[in-house]
Design a protein around this nucleic acid. Structure first.
Lengths: 171, 171
DNA sequence: TTAGGGTAGTTGACAGTTCAACAACACGAA
DNA sequence: TTCGTGTTGTTGAACTGTCAACTACCCTAA
């Protein structure tokens, strides 16, 4: 695979390096702070909270596992594990899908919905405190646009995705 | 702690929400892609690579554990574990610090330096492919500036940091 | 009808991270 | 000196996520 031209590596210039490092650093600190906030003051972790949000936004409060996984950019098995843990706590329920014998729908229980409503204010406050309120409106919008572009670039690159649809083109 | 005014929560508006989600999504995909690249084609993980870089940039190729940890925004114990694993592979060596009986210096071995030199091109290529080359120069610079601001905001907030210097102000 | 290949989801072993508890040292004050 | 407090770094258990292997199902084509 890949011609492997062994072209001389194009290093990052000073500014690019600074930006990349700032990204790594800021990201680590931001996600740390949010994780910590969830740990300290909420009953669901950040990833679990995201699951609750996605389910709550769907018309029936329910989504197929694969849709949930793709929407959150979680791996299939991560989704399985996370949902199982949430099911054990009664936040979520699993059931068969009508037309497809393989599918599993994950749906919000009343307890799950209550949990989400109870914790949303603290979650949003944390996101504000560490991200939204730190930036100007323009900066936040710029960040969103840039990261969407990055996400798109990753999605376009076959090598960036997990083993799903890997196909081992090398045979 | 905290007056707990219970002010009505200030939700995120539509645009803020989109930006925040784009951030989460793009970030997840980007770091996944880089992790995957390191896993598939390199001999050191991304966090280990960062350790090698920091050490190599220091004049003596050596840094105190705490300096390394703070610089990388890694927890103390993460640093300990990571460095121990790297030491087991001969990439790094640990020794006492001159003036302070508590300190441990972590220094690059020849093998570690060779490893870094060998793997740097592939690492940089991945960072380019998934981040740098996807954005314009202005966008990358903007991203860097924004994330630096975020990092600063987190650093300024006492609650965002780990248990170090926690002090349990509540007593 | 069945064979083959793709998709959905789960499972268990494993690796990396966090947390709490701890040991050892530094340093200032009584 | 000695006590108390803060800092540095380590340890092991618990948790979360990844990977590879697997089951079960869908669907098309021969």
């Amino acid at each position: 695979m890949k011609a492997a031209h062994d072209a001389p590596p194009r290093w990052l210039d000073r500014g690019q390096q600074r930006s990349w490092r700032a990204y790594l650093d800021g990201n680590a600190r931001l996600l740390d702070a949010l994780d910590r906030e969830h740990d300290a003051h909420l009953s669901v972790s950040l990833p679990e909270y995201e699951v609750l949000v996605r389910l709550s936004e769907s018309p029936e409060g329910a989504l197929r596992m694969s849709v949930l996984a793709d929407g959150l950019a979680y791996s299939r098995s991560r989704t399985t594990h996370t949902v199982r843990r949430m099911e054990d706590r009664g936040l979520v329920r699993r059931g068969a899908v009508a037309g497809d014998g393989r599918g599993i729908v994950c749906s919000l229980t009343d307890a799950g919905r209550s949990m989400l409503e109870a914790e949303a204010p603290a979650h949003v406050a944390a996101v504000r405190r560490y991200l939204v309120d730190v930036l100007t409106d323009d900066e936040l919008a710029a960040l969103g646009g840039i990261m969407a572009k990055v996400a798109q670039g990753c999605a376009a690159d076959p090598a960036s995705r997990g083993p799903s649809s890997a196909k081992s083109l090398g045979d």
